[in-house]
């Protein structure tokens, strides 16, 4: 499914510069090196981390989108950075596990 379609299923887009990107699988984790070591390209990355480094890791790992859980959002600075780097970031009030279950039903 396309990243932008997540919006119809309870995920709110914070940035969506590349909404047509296809989601292929997912990886859940908050430790950045684990994400870089294990996440596949085009995966959706589910995390509670929202600092600047998340934008860099998302670019380098080439994930299709970042899904912030537990209602976490981005501050304006990181939002601008994600936008500039072409990173899709969505948020949901669901905890990470429930968000992963929901995503699994969709993709």
């Amino acid at each position: 499914m396309k990243v932008s379609e997540l919006q119809e299923h309870g995920f709110t887009a914070l940035t969506l510069p590349d909404g047509d990107r296809e989601i292929v699988g997912a990886y859940m984790g908050d430790l950045l090196s684990w994400v870089m070591g294990r996440a596949r390209a085009d995966a959706a990355w589910i995390t509670i981390m929202s600092n600047q480094n998340v934008a860099a890791v998302a670019v380098l790992a080439d994930v299709s989108c970042v899904i912030l859980t537990e209602g976490v959002t981005l501050d304006e600075n990181v939002k601008g950075l994600a936008e500039a780097k072409g990173i899709n970031v969505l948020t949901t009030a669901l905890p990470s596990y429930e968000a992963a279950v929901r995503l699994s039903e969709l993709i």
């Binding site: 430790l31 950045l32 090196s33 684990w34 870089m36 070591g37 981390m49 600092n51 480094n53």
Partner: peptide
């Protein structure tokens, strides 16, 4: 989010 001890292994 750093310091997981995965840097050099990665």
């Amino acid at each position: 989010g750093f310091g997981a001890g995965m840097g050099l292994p990665n």
